[in-house]
Amino acid sequence: MAITLFAVFALTFFLMNVVPGGTSEMILKHTFIGLEESATQEQLAQFSEIYNLNDPLYIQFIDWLKGGIFEGDLGMSFVYHKPVLDLLLLRLPATIILALSSMAIAVVGGVSLGIYAALKENKTADHLLRFLTLFGVSMPGFWVGLILILIFSVYLKMVPVAGYGSLENLILPAFALSIHSLASIMRITRTSMLETLGQDYIKFATSKGLSVNKIISRHALKNAMLPVVTVLGFQMGAMLGGSVIIETVFAWPGIGSLLVNSIFARDLYVVQACIIVIVFLFLIVNFIVDLVYIYLDPRIRYG
């Protein structure tokens, strides 16, 4: 994980710095003096001095890395004139709240609907749910967000269009962000549940005289969850990616909208830091998922 993280740092840094939009001149024009003007030598020198852009790239990279790891110093924002870390800490809770609520909706909804569909295999309810999941995985999240706003805010006036701070504000973005994962988790749960129900240990449990409820709750649920758990990490990644867009739709003050704004503003250090944070969250989630898997499956626990 350490190597991956380092590589992500390096890749992000060099990518951001070698592309045409990443030179100090471009940034300077973009953030301070306007695109039409040309920058004077003095302005450029001063700017580069302040933001540490004079050294060769690899030195800049090492400085940035050192600062980030040892001092929590991820550089200064060109736009907000504040340390990047402060901005991140300010924005992080909103993203985490949104991602966790969406994940909760996706897991609870996806797992229970998936089990229901599996138990009603090939009946009307199953067909209907499978038809709906096709839409769930195919609709763009931001469009779902807009349609939700249209229905619940514009027409029904049940919740405010955008904002942050109350549960009312959270409902629509969380739902819009969750829908894609909810549908995929439902599909996986259904497939995995059906596969589990066909296993010989289910047959043996039946032959033992257990009730259907016992068989499902004790022998099928946990087993059917294993493949679901393995994809949770990936789903969380998709959700973090989706949050970038959903946060923009709902003006949700998280890392995602910060990233988008910073990209428009060519706020280099903030962009780098946002990407790092998102990747870091993603890796942490994957790590937790691995732990959960080990906890669930004794075959892995004992090697």
Binding site: M16, L240, V244, V271
Partner: peptide
């Protein structure tokens, strides 16, 4: 494989967004 893993550890849209942001 390591390189593949690294590319897979970025949420795709975020990565594409960042590249586009600076490429134009």
């Amino acid at each position: 494989s390591r390189i593949i893993d690294i590319f897979l550890s970025f949420p795709g849209i975020v990565f594409a967004l960042a590249i586009m942001g600076f490429l134009g």
